[in-house]
Amino acid sequence: MAILKCAGLSKRYGSVSALEGLDLAVEPGRIVGLLGPNGSGKTTLIKLANGLLRPSEGQVLIDGREPGVESKKLVSYLPERACLPEWMSVQGLLGFYGDFYGDFDRAAATEMLSRLEIDPKRRFKHLSKGNREKVQLILVMSRKAKLYLLDEPIGGVDPAARDFILSTIIRSYNPEAAVIISTHLIADVEKVLDDVVFISRGRLLLNASADDLREQRGKSVDEVFREVFRC
């Protein structure tokens, strides 16, 4: 069964339509790129999937149920902006996450942190921007969730940090879980993706296997994206 299912999903803010009649199903074991220009509805879709927003019309289901307290046990969410208590130490954040989420694997998180050579006693706000992003991703990926929603995980970090983030996603791969990565930096993520979903102005433009798309068009996903969204 699809871990995420959207049917006729729409979200309007007053007269502005952010999502319009979106149909989408994501199966476990897939790494999906949610791709679109700025303002295309990527963040709105992710917020609807974790219950931070309510649909204006249509439905979004997580493992067959509407988002709510139960679905938060299944969904691990990396927001676009940091929302962790910044005064806490990295070590403190591990405890914080462990208290909130029963599926948090502290040993896995500690192991990933040690690879980064980040002192766990340092306060989160004293870390570099790149390291803050990495710590957040480690927290999110160290949960044994069914659905990972990563909103712009590689925006605003240097290429080395990007590589670390992508290899963390590959390393955490679990055939029972799906990963959705929203980004407009397609060239960087495309090798990691099973499927690509293009959205534009709140509508679904394309939903295909990344390799099928490359085969049919004889181009990289990045090139197809540039063609579809040419200004």
Binding site: G29, R30, I31, D163, L166, S167, I170, R171, Y173, K191, V192, L193, D194, D211
Partner: peptide, 17 residues
């Protein structure tokens, strides 16, 4: 599979295929 996926920086399903 997983090792190869990490080395190549690709999805494990791709390495498997």
């Amino acid at each position: 599979v997983r090792e190869m996926a990490l080395e190549a920086g690709v999805n494990p399903n791709t390495a498997q295929r």
